[in-house]
């Protein structure tokens, strides 16, 4: 059994491994989608197809001791940070083998061994928490950083502004990463937000900010490395706006018919998998044959895993009553 931390460590300095993980995420989301469509998963789901480069750029730049507070769009970042497809799919299917023991569901991933704090299904929920984690690192004089990962729509909620302001005045080692996929649910950004270059919002908090190409793993790493360096050396927070695109609808049922014609096709030309493949071929790290092999192997492996997870045990009834309070310490 590979552990989360082993899967995480495999990414560092290994562009092929990062690419393989991106393929894994893409295939994983296909399975999730198919399971939902077939009715074998309950509730809702939010796919991150098209946003794999951002997830991998983050996972291969942060250390496992850094922490990240993310959102309901949780599968890609969880897999990237190291969670096993088994524990992520197990959670989505409500199995005892899921990372939250099956009581959380698709929107709620967590694995503290690789720094993933519980992802929140409330917009803005994770931002003050990332700042607070960074506050702890500041007080504890550790070199770790906190990261908040959230969508463009989340920049309109109060918690966003309050967190940025706090982080700025306290010079917290936190990085705000806005995944600007230009939609919040069914609304395009221009309908809800007066500006589209959201990183400019950090200006009024006197916080360094940048826009990066979220489809390109190198661009993500470069921008984030700079922000991490700034935070680790005590120079405070950075706001990063990653320009991305959501290839699928917002959630399970959404066909995304509200998108203008051609918009998806335009972004698909910059599919992060495609860009990475071109790069790896150019650098002679992979060949087209090898790429095809990676894809087909991943498909087969995840397909087999999915069959296994379907048969995994359901949580015991007692799971419903567990982990609500910290158990009292029993004195010996």
């Amino acid at each position: 059994m590979t552990t989360s931390i082993e899967r995480r460590n495999a990414l560092y300095g290994n562009d092929v491994a990062c690419y393989e993980r991106m393929v894994e995420i893409r295939e994983f989301e296909k399975i999730t989608n198919a399971f939902f469509a077939a009715g074998s998963i309950r509730g809702t789901t939010h796919l991150a197809v098209g946003q794999e480069a951002l997830a991998l750029g983050i996972a291969s730049t942060l250390k496992p001791t850094d922490v990240l507070a993310g959102t309901y769009r949780s599968h890609a970042i969880a897999l990237a940070l190291g969670l096993t497809p088994h524990s992520v799919l197990g959670e989505i299917m409500g199995k005892a083998t899921g990372c939250c023991g099956g009581v959380g569901g698709s929107m709620h991933m967590c694995d503290t061994s690789v720094g993933l704090l519980p992802t929140s299904a409330i917009i803005g929920g994770g931002m003050p928490i990332a700042a607070g984690a960074a506050l702890a690192f500041q007080v504890q004089k550790s070199k770790n950083v906190g990261v908040a990962l959230f969508g463009d729509g989340a920049t309109n909620i109060g918690a966003f502004h309050e967190s940025l302001n706090l982080a700025a005045i306290w010079k917290l080692p936190v990085i705000f990463i806005c995944d600007n996929n230009i939609y919040g649910e069914y609304s395009r950004i221009d309908k809800t937000t007066p500006i589209e270059d959201l990183h400019n919002r950090a200006e009024s908090y006197a916080m360094p900010h940048m826009a990066i190409d979220g489809m390109d793993i190198h661009a993500v790493r470069k921008g984030l490395a700079e922000a991490v360096e700034c935070a680790r050396s005590g120079n405070g927070p950075t706001f990063i706006e990653a320009k991305t695109y959501r290839f699928s609808g917002h959630s399970r049922a959404d066909q995304a018919l509200y998108r203008p014609d051609g918009e998806l096709a335009m972004w698909q030309k910059r599919d992060p998998l495609l860009l990475t493949e071109q790069d790896l071929i150019a650098r002679k790290l992979l060949t087209q044959e090898k790429i095809d092999l990676i894809k087909s192997t991943t498909e087969i492996e995840l397909g087999a895993l999915a069959k296994q997870v379907e048969k995994d045990p359901e949580p015991e009834l007692s799971a419903m009553f567990s982990n609500i309070y910290t158990p009292k310490k029993v004195s010996k």
């Binding site: 099956g102 949580p315 009834l317 419903m320 609500i324």
Partner: peptide
Amino acid sequence: TPDVPVPFNGGLEARY
């Protein structure tokens, strides 16, 4: 309901 958060798992939620 018991004093618990709403569990996701279908079998558990059916008892909630």
